[in-house]
């Protein structure tokens, strides 16, 4: 029941909001103890769940639900026709961005698609201009942008700083904030996502209102830009559009079809580009075949591998 445990830990990290000052006397309620315990849990969590795990066969997913819901087992059976493996990520609120990052870099390291790297670099430049035009000071985001560009260049082989697939995994698991390693690259994606949402605020506003009943500005400030804030379809749409990278999200939940047959829903986030001013028609697009496939279970994203 690996994942249930992850869910539990996520709840723990959200406790400060639930802490009721009126019910708890400060004198018998030592925050330092609680926080120490909390960080101990996080450390155990870190040992058990690296930021990105090893690639596992899809059967490991089925094992999780062995004694659980039959409908989930049936769905995993359906999934196994199309997908061969899963790579789990840590449930620390950054799992969507980290899954995206790893999946994208892994794709580049395997495909060595130089044209794609050039294309995304152009998108990254646009994102930089977006943030500037929104009034962000360069010094707030430039280090994170450089980090991502360095990452991109390192997965293309033949450079001095090229890294292997193994090294990509090692670096992705690096916990330290000290050297602005892969941990901090999550901030690059948060900046890009926030910039895109604000740039197209009239498009995103209704979705944001539906999610959190706040303004676009407030949503970005509290639910996009801080590390550890979980992602929703708004974040995914914005990131996919901003970087021009399609993303498939496969939903694994207990819902079933009316006619009794078991199918697994997915949604393709297909980027709208500046060149195609048509309305967004995500999901129905016929020839898109996203190379990034994420498995969503309520509150968490992992990476899926096609057969």
């Amino acid at each position: 029941m690996q994942n249930n445990q992850e869910d539990e830990i996520q709840t723990t990290s959200h406790q400060p909001h639930d802490h009721d000052v009126n019910d708890n006397d400060w004198s018998n309620y030592k925050d330092s103890d609680v926080m120490q315990q909390h960080s101990a849990i996080l450390e155990q969590d870190a040992a058990k769940f690296p930021f990105v795990g090893d690639k596992e066969p899809l059967s490991s997913l089925a094992n999780e639900y062995k004694s659980g819901s039959p409908i989930l087992l049936e769905k995993i059976e359906v999934l196994s026709k199309e997908y061969a493996g899963i790579r789990r990520t840590r449930g620390d609120g950054n799992c969507f961005f980290r899954s995206f990052m790893f999946s994208y870099l892994e794709h580049i390291i395997e495909s060595q698609d130089k044209a794609e790297v050039e294309r995304i670099k152009t998108s990254v430049e646009k994102c930089r201009k977006t943030l500037q035009s929104l009034g962000y000071a360069d010094f707030t985001f430039e280090d994170f942008f450089s980090l991502f560009i360095e990452q991109l260049e390192s997965v293309l082989q033949g450079n001095e700083d090229s890294i292997s697939h193994d090294e990509l995994i090692v670096r992705s698991r690096d916990q330290s904030v000290s050297d602005y390693g892969y941990y901090a690259v999550v901030m690059f994606f948060r900046f890009v996502t926030s910039g895109e949402i604000k740039k197209r605020s009239e498009f995103f506003e209704p979705f944001i209102l539906g999610l959190s009943n706040t303004t676009v500005e407030q949503f970005c400030k509290t639910s996009v830009e801080p590390m550890g804030e979980e992602s929703d379809h708004v974040h995914i749409t914005a990131l996919s559009d901003a970087l021009g990278v399609p993303i498939r999200v496969v939903y694994l939940d207990r819902s079933s079809c009316d006619n009794g047959s078991v199918s697994v829903n997915h949604h393709d986030f297909v980027p709208v580009s500046d060149d195609t001013p048509n309305d967004k028609t995500s999901g129905s697009g016929s020839e898109t075949n996203p190379f990034i496939v994420l498995l969503y279970r309520p509150g968490h994203y992992d990476i899926l591998y096609k057969k």
Partner: peptide, 8 residues
């Protein structure tokens, strides 16, 4: 909780 490097 809501600190972000985007702030100054």
């Amino acid at each position: 909780d809501s600190w972000s490097p985007a702030m100054t």
